[in-house]
Design a binder for these strands. Sequence first.
RNA 1: GGUCCGGUAGCUCAGUUGGAUAGAGCAUCAGCCUUCUAAGCUGAGGGUCAUUGGUUCGAAUCCAAUCCGGAUCACCA
Length: 592
Amino acid sequence: MIGAIVKEKVVSALEGLFNMAFTEKDFQVNQTKPEFEGDYTVVLFSLVKSLKLSPDELGNKLGSELIKRSPELFTGFNIIKGFLNLTIAESFWLDLLKENYQKEEYGKHAPNGVKVMVEYSSPNTNKPLHLGHLRNNFLGWSIAEILKASGNEVIKSCIVNDRGIHICKSMLAWKLFSNGATPESTNQKGDHFVGDYYVKFNDAYKLEVDALVAAGQSKADAEKNAPIMQATQEMLKKWEEGDPETIQLWKMMNSWVYAGFDETYKKIGSDFNRTYYESETYLLGKDTVQDGLEKGVFFRKDDGSVWIDLTADGLDEKLVLRKDGTSVYITQDIGLAQDKYKEYGIDKSIYVIGDEQNYHMKVLKLICQKIGLPYADSIYHLSYGMVELPTGKMKSREGTVVDADDIVAEMNAIAAKHTAELGKVQDFAPEALNELYDTIGLGALKFFLLRVDPKKKMVFNPEESVDFHGFTGPFIQYTHARIKSILRKEKIDPAFEGIDSDKLFPLEKSLLVSLEQYEDIIAQAASELNPSVIAIYAFNLAKTFNSFYAEHSVMQAETESKKQLRLRIAAMTALVLSSSMKLLGIRVPERM
RNA sequence: GGUCCGGUAGCUCAGUUGGAUAGAGCAUCAGCCUUCUAAGCUGAGGGUCAUUGGUUCGAAUCCAAUCCGGAUCACCA
């Protein structure tokens, strides 16, 4: 905000001085580096040339003019090597503090009337969630919150991949190997239970393939001819024909999985306003293809299959309907994109999907544009990188996946261990302790997965990643708890009026400058669709507060005025820490 | 091979869209708990920003080429 105000002021000062038009793009305004005096800096180089002045001359003119025009905002300036460093009036920072130190909604933007759908999570019903899914869920949830905070109306959606050959694999394995076992009978979480049968299928399949290869078949033939695979194909056919027995088995196993997912979602805090099931959407989009054929968007090949030619866009030809008239992956995505519009009238659509689908999403957007979907230009693929282990990629076949439920439980256990060692909350009741472990453990995990740029792949080291010191969630939570401890002991006097007369110490000022930026940070995170912007901001704010905390006492402040000032700064810092962590889906405790 | 993404300290990552002496955390070393919570604070060491060339007042950032890593280019989803 203040950055924008400074720019505005500079533009009008320049126009007044030189009697010509300027825009905010003609120069840059940055925060002044700590080693120089001042708060915000105008970079003069880009103006020097056109105005034919030396940087010093221009700086002096501009600096004086700014102070002359806005003495209430600018109180001083200096020029160093082409940089005009401006000092902002203390009253500006103090007013900001006075107005906002207890405003819950501080930093949030007014509604902008834009409706956006965020689709995320999108699980398969044949295996439990793993670490990669967690990154997806945390990203999606956080992006939705950030968009809300920046004024958008947000609909969180989820598409469940509940049909297809892979689902039939676990169904068949259950039929063959379970002897009627259920999650209840084995005391297992439903998604893990079903996931185990998916693994059992693959084991059995591999044995059959090996046997056929040993008997002289080629690998490709063996993979096709393995009896268990053929039985699976048969089952998929039955499912598509609506065979009651198959459908019933499918429903039963899905219900197990959903029960497991619900538990995990509840634990990690994911929720959705609208859930789509692929079993209900997989036939969508065929009409659109017919339509597009007539309009010439698609074309039919001799064998009857339907394609779109994207070579002009630098891509290939892409199939949208098989020769037998059945649809493919992209077909239903086209249909679903239209349904979303019909149901909600959305202006934007964000898909949180891994970067291995960059090509697919590019094709989807192009097709939506060509068939004239109203919001097609605002389809955005929030593409995120894989989560890898120090040993390399996670591979389910090699048992190197980090299971979501396991890692959440492990983080809780570590939180419990640290908390016990520190011994600060021994008076907590057991339920309160468990809640605290949840808050800290999950906070550490979420922060770890959200603090890096989504599009980058990341390494998760089970040993090092669970650190609770430094650039972590618990560090910020701890800072919040520290502040709350002060505020429990010393109350703010809301009627106190005499704060203005005091000169701010550098760390007091730094905190206020940081707090002032919160609104801009939300806007930046929303426009970049990047929660790490928030994470980095919250960390820096907490760090500044901790330095302040070590340097200055709140309760033993030099004067009553200083005490009231610092209490307000502390309260507002706690507020913004809590608010920004909430945008990441992370709770902050009162004590820890 | 085509397309896209990435390469910054021993490790994991920032770098405000071209600005001041490239910054954090972890790890290492040295200090700080009779004073508001030490999950903290202060300081030190650690860099050919993959390489080469170009653009200009000025490049980690923009352009070109090269090297390395990854993803993708299915009538799977």
